[in-house]
């Protein structure tokens, strides 16, 4: 009888962006929902990590994606294609750009795996005991930061944003995004996230 441990995850190769599959019937550009989801996940990463915005640029270089995400302004423009944004740019996001942002999201999420797991465990314990989030310093810190980021950057007049007008709703959204980020840290995280962005978009 032989025992084998699972194979190690391979380091990102140069043509990383091509590893994400493009299933049949995919639209030629990212949908509204995809643009919103990607931006919200990046917002959650910023709330987890104060240097998140810088880390996004750095990881774009590290992953060899600086051809697609060309510097700070380009990254800002891409994120501003989120229709919920206060200064939404109404510009399309190509599949390549979407892939690049998905890869950056998963790369950063993987680096934050420990923190994400801690926060989710903390959330689970607090809700088991019926306690408020204030009892977990890191968690309440994350939630407060996410709320302020969200309110500062999203257009409060959009119906999609009005749905998150209360602290409770925003906390729920923040926890939901945290769970999604956890799933992004997995072996197939990037592929899963990428595919999930097109749910309901194909025939």
């Amino acid at each position: 009888m032989q025992v084998q441990s699972p194979p190690n995850t391979e380091p990102p190769s140069l043509n990383l962006i091509d590893q994400l599959s493009i299933p049949e019937g995919l639209p030629s550009e990212c949908s509204r929902r995809a643009k919103t989801q990607i931006d919200l996940l990046l917002l959650a990463i910023e709330a987890l990590d104060l240097g998140g915005a810088e880390a996004m640029l750095a990881s774009a270089k590290e992953l060899g994606l600086d051809e697609v995400v060309r510097g700070r302004v380009n990254l800002w423009l891409l994120r501003s294609s989120n229709p919920l944004r206060r200064f939404s740019q109404r510009q399309p996001m190509s599949l390549e750009e979407g892939k690049a942002l998905v890869l950056i999201t998963c790369f950063l999420a993987r680096r934050l795996t420990v923190l994400i797991r801690q926060l989710l465990l903390g959330y689970q314990q607090l809700s088991d005991q019926g306690l408020s989030f204030d009892h977990h310093f890191r968690l309440s810190d994350y939630l407060a930061r996410f709320r302020s980021h969200f309110r500062a950057r999203m257009n409060a007049n959009r119906s999609g944003v009005i749905a998150y007008s209360t602290d409770e709703k925003l906390n729920e959204l923040a926890i939901e995004l945290l769970t999604k980020l956890l799933f992004c840290t997995g072996t197939e995280g990037a592929e899963r996230l990428w595919i999930s962005l097109f749910d309901g978009e194909v025939a």
């Binding site: 995919l26 197939e188 592929e191 595919i195 999930s196 749910d199 309901g200 194909v202």
Partner: peptide
Amino acid sequence: PELSPLARRFV
């Protein structure tokens, strides 16, 4: 794994 986007009819 059969990962594929969900068809519109399921949504």
